[in-house]
Amino acid sequence: MNRVHMLEIEFEYNGQKQIITPVLLQDEVDTILIDCGYPDFLPLLEKAARRHGISLQSLTKVIVTHHDMDHIGSLAALKRAYPHIEIIAYELDAPYVEGAKTSLRIEQAKSTFNDLPDEAKPQAEQFIRFLQSIEPASVDRSVHHQERLPWCGGIEIIHTPGHMPGHISLYLPTSKTLISADAVVIEQGRLEIANPQYTMDLEEAIRSVQRLLDYDIEQLICYHGGLFIGNVKQALQHLISAYKSDVK
């Protein structure tokens, strides 16, 4: 029996209530976590898993969709707590997860720093220091576009760049479920591009949404927004059309 569990985690960040939705996949052999939140989120992950009757002691693998701070922040802590787990990342993103390359978010923040007004620079410096504090973690397995992993009924890797060059989404063919990570998010019931102002390549992000239309999706889970309610294909097409109209 293959199961998909959404770990809804509510917290406060910068004085605002936020919710993220890591996902646990489970079968008779494996328990696989998709993304792991900000630094110090291990207790929140463990509590969210327990709500589904799952102990993270049973965790066998962690797949990280990209190296943003809210997706890999607790990865090193997870590995320390559960050293047997296998960490999996996309081939382009693995060097950033491991710390062999400087985070693209750090480079992005530094590249815009001199254009900021003086009063905004202390906060920007604090943000850069926070990004620099994120612990790297060794990647045990790199994956590539359209690779099909045999666990939990099958997991297909979909390279969905734009938000970041090495961003991936995951497709579960047995349940026709797409785990979008930050390829799309839900805002006020609609599908949107995640933080367009910080998206590395907005045109590429739209092409990635277009790529998702190739899949038969009955259930869409967004890291920011959780489970999408509605016609997935129609909502994806509407999002693409909205951005094409803006370009015109």
Rank of each mutant, 00 (worst) to 15 (best):
Q126Y: 10
T160P: 04
A94P: 00
S103V: 01
Q16T: 06
P196S: 09
I63A: 06
F11P: 04
H224L: 07
T65H: 05
M200Y: 14
H159E: 03
E86Q: 12
L212H: 07
T177E: 00
D93H: 01
D182Q: 05
S58D: 15
E46S: 12
L213Q: 12
Y96P: 00
F113V: 00
Y38M: 14
Y215E: 02
T21Y: 13
Y215D: 01
T199M: 05
I63W: 10
G230T: 10
Y223A: 11
Y82F: 15
I240R: 14
Q18R: 13
I186C: 03
I72W: 06
V29D: 15
Q197A: 08
E98T: 01
H159C: 03
L25P: 08
Q237L: 14
S103L: 09
G154D: 08
S175V: 02
T160C: 09
P136D: 06
C36N: 15
I106L: 06
I217C: 03
H71M: 13
P165D: 03
A100W: 02
L172W: 01
G53W: 04
N231W: 10
G15T: 01
T112S: 08
H5A: 07
L191R: 03
I155Q: 13
H5V: 02
A48C: 13
D118F: 07
H238R: 15
T112I: 08
Y90N: 01
L7T: 02
S133G: 11
A124Y: 02
K17V: 07
A48S: 14
P173H: 02
V143P: 07
I221S: 04
E204Y: 08
A49Y: 13
V184G: 04
G154H: 09
C36E: 07
P83V: 05
V143E: 05
I85M: 09
D68V: 14
F113Q: 04
R51A: 11
G189A: 03
L56T: 14
T174W: 04
P39H: 10
T174L: 06
A100I: 06
N2Y: 08
E204L: 15
P95G: 00
Q146P: 06
Q108T: 01
K61Y: 09
A77L: 09
M69D: 15
